[in-house]
């Protein structure tokens, strides 16, 4: 093999780079994501009404797509109401609807987002609930 040493050296560097996401995680504590939905706002509601705009399962899987559709409906089509599968109507607003109940951004949003290392840019513009900021500052 011509330049065998160089090729093997190159391969080693390549493999090292490709496996970087795994090797970087070695030795780090494994923290399972544990999102919380027990905010005072939600707990205040009678148990039967403790429901999100759609089922828990749907929200868990589809919330990102749904938020993008909401966004386009509100900003681009000027439609601000969402009628859910039960026929209930909601005002489509991350700040004014979602976060009114889920006032615990750090435990509700960030918990999983940090776990899967995604960084949605929602909060660059949209304001997170105030209590949360206070709590964080108090820690």
């Amino acid at each position: 093999m011509y330049d065998g040493g160089k090729i093997i050296f190159g391969l080693i560097i390549f493999i090292a780079l490709v496996t970087l996401p795994f090797t970087l995680g070695i030795g780090k504590e494994y923290i399972k994501a544990n999102p919380k939905i027990d905010t005072p706002e939600i707990m205040k509601l009678p148990e039967a009404e403790r429901k999100c705009v759609e089922s828990k399962d749907f929200m868990r899987k589809e919330h990102m797509k749904m938020l993008i559709e909401w966004r386009d409906a509100v900003v681009r089509d000027g439609k601000t109401l969402y009628v859910n599968s039960q026929g209930k109507t909601f005002n489509m607003s991350l700040q004014n609807t979602c976060m009114q109940c889920h006032s615990n951004k750090s435990k509700f949003c960030d918990e999983c987002h940090n776990y899967v290392k995604v960084k949605p840019y929602c909060w660059d513009c949209h304001l997170e609930p105030k209590e949360n900021i206070k709590k964080e500052a108090g820690l």
Binding site: E62, K65, E69, A73, D77, G78, K79, T80, L81, Y82, V83, N84, T89, M92
Partner: peptide, 16 residues
């Protein structure tokens, strides 16, 4: 799946 869902949702958006 994505496209189908968007169509299904379309009628669920309303003006106030």
């Amino acid at each position: 799946v994505g496209k189908g869902e968007i169509e299904a949702f379309a009628e669920k958006y309303k003006k106030v």
